[in-house]
């Protein structure tokens, strides 16, 4: 057996350490070893984006990264978004604008949106598309996701949220 390696990292502000085979992917560490199952696996070859997390503040694919590569890193996953039972404004926007259906890809979208809005509090549609072009959703057709991101940006800027769901009186 290949020697295991110790990995220490912080996820959502909590310090973890684990001893892993070098071949273990980061997402398998998060889900299987640390029990953080909010991050999902959709393709394991870096295309679908379901496994997107923040690594030192940047959105990355956790399925095409080895756990050992994250040694010493600060990670954030979907579990770190809401606090004290309160949805994060991005989550509120996705609920209010119907930015999800089955919800499987959603954690990846949320993390990519989080990174986008950190850098760009008022993105235009082209910028939103550029940020989310690497996140696949098979349910929504993306239109409600675009609305969600616009709404999330507005919420984070402290503006009044848009009228809840499209078509609502």
């Amino acid at each position: 057996m290949t020697a295991k390696r110790d990995v220490s990292l912080t996820v959502n502000g909590v310090a973890y350490s684990a001893s892993v085979e070098p071949r273990m992917t980061l997402v398998d560490l998060l889900r299987g070893e640390l029990g953080l199952t909010g991050t999902h696996v959709g393709c394991e070859h870096g295309v679908c984006g379901a496994c997107t997390i923040l690594l030192n503040g940047q959105a990355v694919r956790s399925c095409i990264m080895l756990a050992v590569q994250a040694d010493g890193a600060e990670l954030m996953t979907v579990e770190g978004l809401s606090e004290d039972g309160q949805l994060h404004p991005i989550q509120q926007a996705f609920v209010g604008q119907r930015g999800l259906q089955c919800g499987f890809c959603t954690p990846g979208f949320l993390m990519s949106v989080y990174e986008l809005l950190q850098h760009n509090p008022a993105p235009g549609d082209d910028e939103i598309k550029e940020a989310l072009g690497g996140e696949l959703c098979r349910c929504t057709g993306y239109q409600s996701i675009l609305r969600s991101v616009r709404d999330a940006a507005a919420r984070l800027r402290g503006e009044v949220p848009a009228a809840a769901t499209e078509g609502e009186a």
């Binding site: 694919r61 990264m65 080895l66």
Partner: peptide, 21 residues
């Protein structure tokens, strides 16, 4: 960065005995 290599590792299309990170 591993963005080309790790997918190949996952698919076992790349089979290095040693990874130098």
């Amino acid at each position: 960065g591993g963005q080309s290599l790790v997918p190949l590792l996952n698919m076992r299309l790349a089979r290095p005995a040693v990874i130098i990170d």
